[in-house]
Structure formats: structure tokens, C-alpha cells
Amino acid sequence: TWADIDTINNVIHVTRSWDHQYGTGFKPTKTEASIRDIEVSSAVIKLLERIHQEQMAAYLRTGYRDADQMIMRNQWHTVITDTACNKALAILQSDAGIPKEKQITFHGLRHSHVSYLISQGIDIYYISKRLGHSDITITMRVYGHLLDSQKKKEAFKATAAMDRL
């Protein structure tokens, strides 16, 4: 919801999930570890603020009131499903000239996000918490192979540190 976006501190608060399967509304997250704060860039916050302004203007024109203050609703004011998000993403990728066999889903973007963070030397413990994993071993099991490329850098840093003793 819009209330979960902290525009002052550039944070998205993840505190609950939406029940797409049974349509019962909000539900608890999958695990307690899924409740987390995700730091985002100021560019993401600016984009969200623009979307919020456009959404409020559209609602004002149509007289729609959203008691839940949902970020993502479609033209019929229902919550957008995972399938609809992936279809929209596929259209954007096609429009960008990305061949169908190279296109990615939102879940794939999650993996790409982690791969990028690892390639930039971001701490795996931080990544694990950012993903909402209850245990770092989950993150290591899924993404550990990507850390092999960091091993040489870390070995160099470790031996250099020992040499400074």
C-alpha cells in the first residue's frame, strides 16, 4: 500500500501479503523473516511518487475511493495479479526488442537483482535479509555458486590483511 512506502528514508516496508489465490484480501507474509524493510534508491521513490500522483488524479476524475490505498490496481480497480504483471512485463520486453526466448518474469528479475548485488560485492547476509529469507543457508543454497567469482577477490583481500599484521 502507499502507507508502506517511506519516501523520507527511501524504504519499502513489507509487512503482509495479498491473497490472490482465494481473494480474501491481506494475509500474513509467508514467514516471519518476510517482514522486512527494503532500501531503494531515490529514483525509485521519485517514480513511485509520480505514479501515486497520477493514480490520485485518475481516482479524482472517476470518483473512485480506495480504502486500502493499494499501489497496483487495474482499470477495474482490482489488485493486479502476478500473471497480469508478467504479461505487462513481456509486452514491455517485446517493445524493447528482447526476443521471447530471452525474456524474463518478475521472479526472474528477483534472481537477476541478487546476481547483480553479488557481482557488486554486496554482503550475502544483507542480501539474505533483503530477500526475506529466514536463514542465510537458503540464500547460500540458491546463490552460492555466484559467490565463487568473489572468492579470488576475497582471498587477495584476506592475504593482504594478513600481510599487514
Rank of each mutant, 00 (worst) to 15 (best):
E32C: 06
G108P: 00
E39L: 08
I5Q: 05
Q150V: 07
E49N: 12
H145Q: 11
Y59L: 06
Q120R: 04
Q103G: 01
A160C: 12
P28A: 10
D6V: 01
A43S: 12
M56F: 10
E54R: 09
I80C: 00
H52P: 01
L165A: 06
R141Y: 13
D82G: 12
T24V: 14
T81H: 01
A88Q: 08
A43R: 13
G25E: 04
Q21S: 13
P99K: 07
G144V: 00
Q150K: 09
L92G: 14
A58R: 09
Q75A: 14
Q55S: 12
H145K: 14
L165G: 04
S112I: 07
R141L: 14
K153P: 00
G144N: 03
I35R: 00
A67N: 15
H20C: 03
E101F: 13
Q120H: 12
Q150S: 08
P99F: 10
A58P: 02
C85M: 11
K102G: 04
T81Q: 08
N86A: 07
A57P: 01
Y116T: 14
V142M: 04
D37C: 04
H20R: 10
V142H: 03
A84I: 10
D148I: 05
I104C: 00
V44F: 02
G63V: 04
S34Q: 07
G144C: 05
H133A: 00
T81V: 08
D4G: 05
N86G: 01
H13S: 09
K30M: 09
R36V: 06
W76M: 05
D163S: 12
E49V: 14
H133Y: 07
A160D: 15
A3K: 15
S119P: 02
T7P: 05
D95E: 15
D4M: 08
I138R: 04
S134Y: 00
Y64A: 03
Q53L: 14
H107V: 02
T159C: 13
D135I: 05
E49Q: 14
I91L: 14
I5H: 00
R73A: 11
A88F: 11
Y143C: 03
S119H: 11
Q69T: 04
R16L: 07
R110Y: 03
I91N: 12
G63D: 10
I80S: 03
E54A: 12
T62V: 07
L117H: 00
D19V: 03
M162E: 09
H145D: 11
G132A: 07
K153E: 12
P99V: 11
E32Q: 12
R141I: 15
Q93E: 11
D95I: 11
I122Y: 04
T7Q: 11
I91F: 10
H77L: 06
R164F: 13
L147Y: 07
G121N: 09
A43C: 09
H111T: 02
H113P: 01
G23N: 12
W76F: 14
H145C: 09
G97S: 11
K129E: 09
G108S: 10
D95W: 12
I118E: 03
H145F: 06
I104G: 02
M72F: 15
T159N: 10
A160K: 15
T83V: 14
R110S: 06
V44I: 14
T78A: 11
D37I: 01
I122M: 11
A155G: 13
N9R: 10
